[in-house]
């Protein structure tokens, strides 16, 4: 009887590998579970036991320029008036923006920015976002688009943690094409006649102010 039990336990030990709750047998587990802190590991040193810590308040990563507008209504308006896309326009940037859009925006805003993405059309979702080329958003200036991606707007959450500033500006170019803007013409105008561009921007902002 003892022998039978022994055989059973050996078989069970090997069969244990297929138990989805267990990672299986480990030979020299210290090679897998190193004493150094791995990403996201539990760390009893801290009160909440979370090994992933927030950086000290006010710390700025090397080579990083913090976004200078605050997450307030005033900040939003200021960004709309003052912020310009620092990346010189090129079609390549727009197509890169399109790629980023496909990863971070399309599931809510939809392929053409009509607010008909898979998440937004899910009946559980409270309400779809407005269309980029609709009355509410088609004249939204670049700065406000950037500000909204950074801090979020309404039900849309902040995306600054997922998309870095350069990628956000590429996105702005692509969103502007979805607004129906002729970026090439805008850029050419900016190059040939700076003043005219500024006036146009003023007009843009005025209509937007009425909106708000």
């Amino acid at each position: 009887m003892k022998r039978v039990l022994l055989i059973c336990s050996v078989v069970a030990a090997f069969a244990g590998c297929s138990d989805p709750q267990s990672p299986g047998v480990e030979y020299m587990p210290d090679m897998y579970r190193s004493p150094s802190i791995e990403a996201y590991e539990e760390e009893k040193l801290f009160a909440d036991h979370s090994g992933a810590r927030m950086p000290a308040e006010g710390s700025i990563p090397r080579g990083f320029m913090p976004y200078q507008y605050e997450n307030t209504t005033e900040g939003y308006e200021m960004a709309g008036k003052e912020l310009k896309n620092p990346l010189p326009y090129s079609e390549e940037l727009v197509s890169e923006g399109k790629e980023i859009y496909g990863k971070f925006c399309v599931h809510c805003h939809g392929k053409k920015g009509k607010g008909d993405g898979a998440v937004a059309s899910n009946p559980k979702w409270p309400g779809p976002p407005p269309a980029y080329d609709g009355a509410r958003l088609k004249d939204l200036p670049a700065g406000k688009i950037f500000h909204s991606i950074t801090y979020g707007k309404g039900l849309m959450g902040p995306h600054a943690g997922q998309i870095n500033q350069e990628d956000r500006w590429k996105l702005v170019y692509y969103v502007q094409t979805l607004q129906g803007k002729d970026l090439k013409a805008m850029q050419a105008e900016a190059g040939s006649d700076q003043k005219e561009m500024e006036e146009e921007n003023k007009e843009d902002n005025n209509t937007e102010n009425q909106d708000a």
Binding site: S18, Q21, S22, G24, V25, E26, Y32
Partner: peptide, 9 residues
Amino acid sequence: GVGVYQGYA
């Protein structure tokens, strides 16, 4: 299978 996590769920 020692040290292989395949199927671990």
